[in-house]
């Protein structure tokens, strides 16, 4: 076991409150490369582990603008430039009729970007991840809460990090092989 490269040190908690407190203590102790796992979203936990840059809204905004412009320009070009067709005497560039498709294209692009952008920024789909090497981690999708200090953290040291995590009132502390 100890010959394998180590991915990090993981602590298991019973309640979301303990995980939240542990996340605050761990980052206060100077650990920077940490992550927390929970079976449901916990407000403030991402901030507690030092996560700030959420790019999802920007991605959605850009995609929405691109979608709207695409929708409108497409209709204008098709109806007024590429194949002008007189429909009951309406102008070729009859903009009120183009609003609905413009709106739908805005929503379509923004919605698809919200999902694909979220997945891409999260690095999903990810077929393999070392945290799943811990058998207890299966409970992270049920009723247990996990905190990990990655081995890449400059302050990481197998024994001192383990001792530190033991002080946070966990159920167990485990080493994560990578």
């Amino acid at each position: 076991m100890s010959q394998l490269p180590i991915y990090g040190m993981m602590a298991e908690f019973d309640t979301p409150q303990r995980l939240m407190d542990a996340a605050h203590h761990t980052s206060a102790a100077g650990y920077r490369k940490i992550d927390a796992y929970s079976p449901f979203p916990i407000e403030g936990l991402a901030e507690a582990i030092g996560f700030e840059s959420n790019a999802v809204p920007l991605v959605v905004l850009i995609a929405g603008i691109v979608g709207g412009v695409t929708g409108y320009v497409m209709q204008y070009w098709m109806a007024a430039v590429s194949y002008p067709l007189n429909i009951s005497g309406k102008p070729y560039h009859s903009w009120p009729s183009f609003i609905i498709v413009t709106f739908e294209m805005t929503i379509l692009f923004a919605g698809v970007a919200a999902v694909l952008g979220m997945l891409a920024l999260n690095g999903l789909p990810m077929p393999y991840h070392p945290v799943f090497n811990v058998p207890r981690f299966a409970f992270a999708s049920k009723d247990r809460f996990f905190l990990i200090v990655f081995a890449s953290d400059p302050k990481y040291d197998a024994s001192s990090t383990r001792n530190f995590l033991e002080t946070l009132d966990p159920r167990a502390v485990m080493e994560v092989p990578s």
């Binding site: 996340a23 991402a46 582990i49 959420n54 959605v60 929405g64």
Partner: peptide
């Protein structure tokens, strides 16, 4: 499930994305 592991960072982006989708689906 695409390797979902419930990371706090993932949940944060997930909730943003879910909320934005709800905001987009409402006028839709």
């Amino acid at each position: 499930a695409m390797g979902w592991r419930g990371s706090a960072r993932h949940w944060h982006r997930y909730e943003t994305s879910y909320l934005l989708l709800a905001g987009l689906a409402t006028p839709l």
